[in-house]
């Protein structure tokens, strides 16, 4: 078992965002978290690598407890990739600079090796020709692919995707999903918050449906789409499929 999340609670003021979420992931699995907006999906992702500290609950990665105060969280975060909805590429660095800064500054890799590595990762997302471009010179889809490369360059055990295509124009979504699909097929462990049902159907080993801070239901896509146990799950999946279509 690669990741174990146990009974995570998170509250903002009086607003209970997460009320006891537990699940596990095995190496090489892709899991997709779906659910109405405001149900704590993004918060859950951030609680996993402690970008947002959880109020209660525990998380283990490879039998190391992340939520323990003694854990060196920076070391753990280096092993967990994170892809943001709004890309968050470093605006003062080129695509290449963005991808190699992690290996150089966190892993203390020398510049030459980090550059070679970064170029490979850019190649992997199909952007080696844009290595010298600054974020402002790239399209949204290209920026998101660079940010995936930035995560990959750290050789993460797991990548968390926080609605990676939600900020993109429709015509740019495909190129990002393509990269994600190929990653899933290569055996990368991925936890993805998304509304892209086509992606979920194609590569997810399991879909987790969340609402109001709890997991309502989880299961393989086939079962979830055709034979959901809970009425809410079925309703939501139908609505979301209508809204977003099943492209990707």
């Amino acid at each position: 078992m690669l990741l174990r999340v146990e009974d995570i609670h998170k509250q903002y003021g009086k607003d209970k965002v997460l009320c006891g979420v537990s699940f596990t992931m095995n190496k090489g699995e892709t899991k997709v978290i779906i659910g109405p907006s405001g149900t704590g999906k993004s918060t859950l992702l951030r609680c996993i690598n402690r970008l947002t500290p959880a109020d209660q609950g525990r998380v283990w990665l490879d039998d190391e407890e992340l939520t323990h105060t003694r854990t060196n969280i920076n070391k753990i975060r280096a092993e967990i990739g994170f892809v943001f909805q709004s890309f968050n590429l470093f605006a003062h660095l080129t695509a290449l600079g963005n991808v190699r800064i992690g290996p150089m500054k966190v892993k203390r890799m020398n510049k030459k090796d980090a550059t070679t590595l970064a170029m490979e990762e850019l190649e992997r997302v199909g952007l080696s020709d844009k290595a010298g471009a600054y974020p402002a010179e790239l399209s949204g889809g290209q920026q998101q692919r660079v940010s995936i490369a930035r995560a990959l360059a750290m050789f993460p055990k797991l990548i968390l995707f926080d609605e990676p295509t939600s900020a993109l124009d429709p015509e740019l979504i495909g190129e990002v999903l393509e990269v994600m699909v190929s990653l899933a097929k290569e055996g990368m462990t991925m936890l993805v918050v998304t509304h892209e049902m086509g992606f979920a159907r194609a590569v997810a080993d399991e879909i987790i449906f969340m609402e109001n801070g709890v997991i309502v239901e989880q299961g393989p896509p086939k079962q979830m789409f055709t034979n959901a146990k809970h009425q809410r799950t079925g309703e939501f999946l139908n609505k979301i499929s209508e809204l977003y279509g099943e492209t990707g």
């Binding site: 920076n74 943001f84 968050n88 470093f90 605006a91 800064i101 940010s147």
Partner: peptide
Amino acid sequence: RGGQMLAARSLGMSLPQAIRY
């Protein structure tokens, strides 16, 4: 933007590293 700090921390940078780089 605040996202820059989050991105730096998500790569495993410490707070001083994130500020500096």
